[in-house]
Nucleic acid binder design. Structure first.
Lengths: 210, 210
DNA sequence: AATTTGTCGAGACTTGATGTCTCGATAAAT
DNA sequence: ATTTATCGAGACATCAAGTCTCGACAAATT
């Protein structure tokens, strides 16, 4: 009863060029057209591959998109660690906001929309967003370990506030996603962590910035 | 060239029982099953009507759901006005959170998901959420007019923080929507408003601010 | 009462996307 | 040289959306 790890992979190996072409075609089409007009057939045609080559590796067209977005997301994975919560939080929020623009924002909307339709895509989406959540959580918990307070809700609430505002603006388009909007959010959340439980006659001065 | 208003409706009239049965069946199915498993055929079967009866009155199954939710949404929540931002904000957030539970939460997820796919549904969704935004904005601006500060981001950011956290948790299910979670969020946002803005000299003061 | 008009439930039908299966060709490990 | 798994390609079944038609039925009109 040989386990799969007992022998090497034999036979023809996976074509990396085809994989890249499929990912690129999916990103291109989901960014340009309404999601309803993107089909496995159109992606296969643009990538110059057979449909079966797609079905062999991805269960749905949205799984292709999620894999592509995961690769694109590796660029912003850097964890800020300057020793100060103020600087780290602003760096994280600014970097995250600046990464969310066309064409990425269209892709995010498509995937989040589909996640509400398909439980499997929803699970993939929880995992996808969880990676960014983990980065922010690390920043917050490191600050807490240093002795910096996180305010009434702790790290859990702060994480949901950052990504809540971000996703809310992505999905409904009601508010800005500019760098200044990012700074504004970071500043507001920092104020939240620093505020005293009652109107303060004295406040702690902000470290390192004015 | 007779206008439509020139004569009365002749012929058999629309069956109100069928309309109600269709709306109820749509709500029931969208609340119970994944949206992908809900079809016009299943709604028609549960309602005991022909498919053509549905297509005659609604363009898509989501139009049925939107009409049903519009009827459900007629319960207008009163605008809290106690004279204190702390009490009003907690009342609003608690009431809003407590209204978002099964089966409503499933319907909200379905409609928000479809809004990312259909621009027309998206517009309706912006309008739908805008009504609740307006209530919170009124609470915040009244507090500001009283002289209570709203913190670095002002009313715009606070509104997005409340509904951002709410929708983020609805869509991804990562955090709680309990009454205690609502109180926690309200408390955190209040802490944020109590922080003093330090570069106050560079800022144009808002009217009514201390 | 008879006629006209529009809705009713039901089913046949077209269209298009999904997903499976098979085929011969090809490339890598044995 | 053989084995094994991928490749592009196409046939095929399945399913939901949407259109069209049918006889039955109900309300307004004549």
């Amino acid at each position: 009863m040989p386990r799969t790890a007992d022998r090497q992979h034999t036979g023809r190996q996976r074509n990396e060029e085809a994989r890249r072409a499929i990912l690129d075609a999916a990103v291109h089409q989901f960014a340009e057209r309404p999601a309803a007009e993107v089909t496995v057939a159109t992606i296969a045609a643009e990538a110059g591959v057979g449909r079966q080559t797609i079905y062999r590796w991805w269960p749905t067209k949205f799984a292709i998109l999620l894999e592509a977005m995961t690769e694109l997301g590796r660029a912003v994975v850097a964890v800020p660690d300057s020793g100060s919560l103020a600087a780290d939080l602003e760096a994280f929020v600014t970097a995250t906001f600046s990464a969310v623009k066309e064409p990425t924002i269209s892709l995010l909307r498509v995937v989040m929309g589909e996640a509400q339709r398909d439980p499997q895509v929803h699970r993939l989406m929880v995992e996808f967003t969880g990676r960014r959540r983990a980065v922010l959580r690390e920043v917050l918990e490191r600050a807490e370990a240093r002795g910096e307070p996180l305010g009434p809700g702790g790290a859990d609430l702060l994480v949901d506030q950052v990504f809540g505002v971000l996703w809310y603006r992505i999905l409904l388009g009601n508010g800005p996603l500019t760098p200044s909007a990012a700074r504004e959010l970071a500043e507001a959340l920092l104020a939240q962590t620093r505020a005293l439980p009652w109107p303060a006659s004295e406040r702690t001065p902000r470290p390192g910035k004015c």
